[in-house]
Design a protein around this nucleic acid. Structure first.
Lengths: 143, 143
DNA sequence: TGTGTATAGATGCATTTACATCTATACACA
DNA sequence: TGTGTATAGATGTAAATGCATCTATACACA
């Protein structure tokens, strides 16, 4: 019923390490004049989806977006020209999203900053290096 | 420089699992008419600090709060009577926060819901159970 | 075909958040 | 003592978020 000491510690570490790293990355991106991580997530999923694109509700589930927030973020992204929307033939309610060439450029630009930050922040946490100490690594990360 | 495949997967898993679990817990708390996790965090830290209390800037660092957000959340919490503030003798700029008896009651009430949810959501992730698969457990958690 | 229910997505509104800035006190040091 | 800088905390403002609700289409089924 109630969590063990270990479970609680892991949950706290999960929380704090994610929050801490997320803020560092978002702050650096912003300081470089680049869009934030939520934009990156969308751009990346759309780039992976290639020509077939994705529906908003698919993105919503993959990325754990609040529906209304995604809706508005997409409006902004379309406004900036990094995403383009198309009518979806088989369902009059829906639409399909695809990344534009501009969007791909922006994503690559972001990755130049984002990628190294992941490496730097997650580094020794990687299972290969430290299979038995992921949890303690998470915990030490927040210190 | 750039992250390995494993590092990236771990970062994505860290993100999504934290977001997913956090939302589940916050949603259940709200549905029970209880305050959210940010309140819990403050109440818990103040309860741990006991009679000596904590300064806002200490909470800010421990819990990775934005200074202005913490300031306003504290105002609300003081308004609700779960936290009380005292002048800090040795520094005219500062103040000290202590949890009230009401606050302790609220925290215990929250823990009845929160505790089991941690156990349920983090469960098999615990190092004791699965020392070598924390990362893959994180990854599977988000599926 | 008609009716009820489910799903996709947009939008109004209140709350929360981030960011910049402001005030006041502390502290270092000439 | 006086001056410059750092730190604690509050607040104005714009943007983002969560929630409820709305519209429109789809789908099941009588």
């Amino acid at each position: 019923m109630y969590p063990t000491e270990e479970e609680t510690k892991l949950w706290v570490a999960l929380n704090l390490s994610q929050t801490k790293i997320y803020r560092i990355i978002d702050t650096v991106l912003k300081s470089e004049g680049l869009p934030n991580l939520r934009w990156y997530d969308v751009l990346w999923e759309l780039e992976r989806a290639q020509e077939s694109g994705l529906r908003p509700f698919e993105l919503e589930r993959i990325l754990i977006f609040e529906q209304s927030n995604l809706s508005r973020q997409l409006r902004r992204m379309i406004g900036e020209g990094v995403v383009k929307e198309f009518a979806f033939e088989n369902d009059g309610r829906g639409k399909v999203l695809k990344i534009t060439e501009d969007g791909q450029r922006v994503r690559k630009q972001m990755w130049k900053v984002y990628g190294p930050l992941i490496h730097q922040q997650i580094g020794d946490l990687s299972p290969q290096h430290n299979p038995e100490t992921i949890a303690s690594a998470l915990i030490s990360l927040i210190k």
